[in-house]
């Protein structure tokens, strides 16, 4: 069989229910998503042990699993089909389906419908994981987004300022519970695509702006694109290549702190002029011949 629930829980095939319960609890303590934040591997393993426990802790499903293997849930209908096929034949054996005889099936159905004492255990549905891809500008605004998870549409509000890799839990939107158990949760991880103009560090945005030599030396003004519009930026005279100016409050929105923003840090990259005319060359030579001024 492809998936061995006994192996997943690390118990023998004849393990008693108490041993299965103990093994599940031990693994659950190790792999539960609450104890392994942002660890998709642990989450996946936890889902496996959950499924294994759901099957093996219920005597009926365990019996079916022992008999039919991974496809135990379809075993019954498979068997009925086998029986119908058998009836249509004149005698013969039960075919090759596990080599079972009629008496064995009678035992199985006797157990299945014989009534089990006590309340059926409730199982919480599986937790699901999904990724939501946004660009930096979209993630900077609180907005509604509709997702389709397992065929169901879910409308969520994405708060401004979510970070790349950040995971939020949406309660009750995971797999359905069994026997009246609650639904699992949906863990949604945000993937924020890089922006061509801004990079984000915490709540600050960084941008690089090209500056022509003349503006760098003489100062001036330029229009700068920010997340919430264009601003006029004053360039001080004698601005050095690599100089950084901070625009307070023009950075990224701070998650769950409405109206608060980080800063925008603009790095100037001074571009030297190319393709000089002869006249410009002369002027630069004249400048070069001037007494040297101090350099920072």
């Amino acid at each position: 069989m492809a998936v061995d629930y006994y192996k997943i829980l690390g118990v023998a095939r004849d393990a008693k229910p108490e041993a299965i319960k103990a093994a599940y609890r031990k693994l659950a303590r190790k792999l539960h998503p609450d104890l392994n934040p942002n660890d998709p591997k642990a989450k996946e393993r936890f889902q496996e042990i959950n499924t294994a426990n759901e099957v093996l802790s219920d005597p009926e499903s365990r019996k079916k699993y022992d008999k039919y293997g991974e496809q135990w849930q379809r075993g019954e209908e498979y068997e009925k089909a086998q029986q119908a096929q058998q009836r249509s034949r004149a005698g013969g054996s039960y075919g090759d389906f596990g080599g079972q005889g009629a008496a064995d099936y009678a035992d199985l159905f006797g157990d299945l419908f014989g009534g089990r004492g006590g309340r059926a255990p409730k199982f919480r549905g599986q937790d699901l994981s999904a990724e939501l891809h946004l660009d930096l500008r979209a993630a900077a605004k609180t907005h509604k987004q509709t997702l389709t998870v397992n065929g169901k549409a879910i409308r969520i509000t994405v708060p401004a300022g979510v970070a790349n890799g950040q995971t939020i839990r949406i309660q009750g939107h995971g797999g359905p519970g069994a026997n009246g158990g609650p639904n699992g949760d949906l863990y949604l991880t945000f993937r924020i695509a890089p922006d061509p103009n801004f990079s984000r560090v915490k709540n600050d945005l960084h941008a690089t702006v090209d500056l022509d030599l003349y503006t760098a030396i003489l100062g001036g003004e330029l229009m700068l694109d920010t997340l919430d519009g264009t601003v006029k930026l004053t360039v001080k005279p004698e601005t050095a290549n690599g100089a950084v100016v901070k625009l307070k409050g023009k950075g990224y929105p701070i998650y769950k702190h409405e109206g608060q923003h980080g800063d925008l840090l603009v790095t100037f990259r001074v571009k030297l002029p190319t393709g000089l005319t002869e006249e410009q060359r002369v002027l630069f030579r004249q400048l070069a011949d001037q007494p040297k001024t101090s350099t920072p």
Partner: peptide, 21 residues
């Protein structure tokens, strides 16, 4: 620590080729 790691990763990303803007 995970938050710090993520932030450091983002900061490091700024110095990788093609991410200078």
């Amino acid at each position: 620590l995970q938050r710090e790691l993520r932030e450091l990763g983002e900061r490091l990303g700024r110095y990788e080729p093609g991410s200078d803007t």
